[in-house]
Computed example of a mutant assay.
Amino acid sequence: MDAQDPLERRLDALELKACEAEDLLDELNLTVYRQQQQIDALVRQLEALRALQTDPGASGAPRNLRDELPPHY
């Protein structure tokens, strides 16, 4: 064994760690991208629900329960 072997092994180990870190970073980026897509979809749904709630002509508009009391009360 010469003096290059330990140095070469260390270099190989560092290259492997760098490749693993790069793969992990790509995986994390994809996860963040997918989560942002889900957040955007949820925001659009929330905005649609708010638009329905504020529209007085919408069938899903909140109603006052006092208006539904029988006339004898």
Results as ranks from 00 to 15, higher is better:
residue 19 C to L: 15
residue 46 L to K: 05
residue 73 Y to I: 10
residue 67 D to I: 09
residue 49 L to R: 07
residue 3 A to Q: 08
residue 34 R to G: 06
residue 65 L to C: 05
residue 56 P to N: 06
residue 61 A to I: 13
residue 40 D to H: 07
residue 47 E to M: 13
residue 17 K to Q: 15
residue 2 D to I: 02
residue 70 P to C: 05
residue 66 R to V: 09
residue 68 E to W: 04
residue 31 T to N: 07
residue 45 Q to K: 07
residue 23 D to F: 02
residue 1 M to Q: 01
residue 72 H to E: 15
residue 62 P to K: 02
residue 13 A to S: 05
residue 55 D to A: 03
residue 18 A to Q: 13
residue 8 E to H: 00
residue 1 M to L: 03
residue 3 A to W: 01
residue 21 A to G: 04
residue 7 L to V: 09
residue 14 L to R: 06
residue 29 N to V: 01
residue 34 R to I: 15
residue 57 G to Q: 06
residue 51 A to W: 01
residue 59 S to H: 12
residue 25 L to M: 14
residue 28 L to Q: 13
residue 60 G to F: 04
residue 4 Q to F: 02
residue 65 L to S: 13
residue 67 D to T: 12
residue 46 L to Q: 07
residue 17 K to L: 11
residue 9 R to C: 06
residue 24 L to M: 07
residue 38 Q to G: 11
residue 1 M to S: 03
residue 38 Q to F: 03
residue 10 R to Q: 11
residue 11 L to D: 03
residue 69 L to Y: 05
residue 22 E to T: 06
residue 53 Q to A: 12
residue 54 T to M: 07
residue 30 L to G: 12
residue 25 L to Y: 05
residue 5 D to F: 01
residue 52 L to C: 12
residue 65 L to P: 01
residue 70 P to N: 07
residue 52 L to Q: 13
residue 33 Y to E: 15
residue 40 D to P: 00
residue 4 Q to D: 10
residue 11 L to A: 08
residue 55 D to K: 00
residue 70 P to R: 03
residue 34 R to F: 09
residue 10 R to N: 11
residue 63 R to L: 12
residue 69 L to Q: 08
residue 71 P to Y: 04
residue 31 T to C: 06
residue 28 L to S: 13
residue 15 E to R: 03
residue 52 L to D: 11
residue 3 A to H: 03
residue 39 I to W: 03
residue 14 L to Q: 09
residue 11 L to R: 03
residue 59 S to R: 11
residue 32 V to I: 14
residue 34 R to P: 04
residue 11 L to F: 02
residue 52 L to V: 15
residue 8 E to T: 02
residue 7 L to K: 01
residue 1 M to V: 06
residue 17 K to V: 14
residue 26 D to E: 14
residue 18 A to E: 14
residue 28 L to K: 06
residue 40 D to F: 02
residue 17 K to A: 13
residue 24 L to K: 10
residue 3 A to F: 01
residue 30 L to E: 15
residue 35 Q to G: 06
residue 65 L to F: 10
residue 55 D to W: 01
residue 22 E to L: 02
residue 20 E to Y: 04
residue 52 L to F: 00
residue 62 P to S: 04
residue 31 T to L: 10
residue 20 E to M: 11
residue 56 P to A: 07
residue 51 A to T: 15
residue 66 R to F: 01
residue 63 R to H: 07
residue 5 D to W: 00
